[in-house]
């Protein structure tokens, strides 16, 4: 038998700690990568505002200190009121006014759509037991 194997170092060395540290860091990285986004998602109601098919703004509603009035310039101009409790279009120069009629939305999964303006305000996040996947109507 001619193995080139050297007998192992039998006593722990300093570099071993580095290996353990790397494993530990990896565990933390995976944990943060995996659970981090979910935490963010489940804790915070977020308003996602898009014009056409592009997201122009995401507002974390849970951390808003005071109500925020946002002017959204799509094909039409909408004044959107954002608060801790949800979102509402208070003024729009669109002809149909459907977005204003929609009123206040407060739960994840709900959205306000302004067709002529091509504006969508969609609420995400905030794990809500029994929240629907889709709203029809």
């Amino acid at each position: 038998m001619t193995t080139k194997c050297s007998p192992p170092e039998l006593r722990p060395k300093k570099l071993d700690i580095l290996v353990a540290a790397v494993v530990l860091v990896l565990a933390v990285v995976v944990a943060v990568g995996f659970y981090g986004p979910k935490l963010g998602q489940s804790d915070h109601l977020t308003a996602v505002i898009s014009v056409g098919e592009e997201v122009i703004e995401r507002v974390d509603l849970a951390t808003l200190k005071e109500d925020k009035l946002l002017t959204v310039e799509g094909e039409c101009t909408l004044n959107v009121l954002l608060s801790n409790s949800g979102a509402e279009v208070i003024l729009s120069d669109c002809p149909t006014q459907d977005c204003v009629h929609t009123g206040h939305i407060s739960r994840a999964g709900q959205s306000i759509v302004c067709l002529p303006g091509q504006v969508v305000i969609h609420l995400e996040g905030a794990s809500d037991e029994g929240a629907p996947d889709i709203v029809v109507g």
């Binding site: 192992p8 170092e9 060395k13 570099l15 071993d16 290996v19 353990a20 494993v23």
Partner: peptide, 16 residues
Amino acid sequence: LLRRCRKLSVYGVSIA
């Protein structure tokens, strides 16, 4: 791979 590193003991190799 790691066992070739002389600065690692059997513990480090094993944990990895």
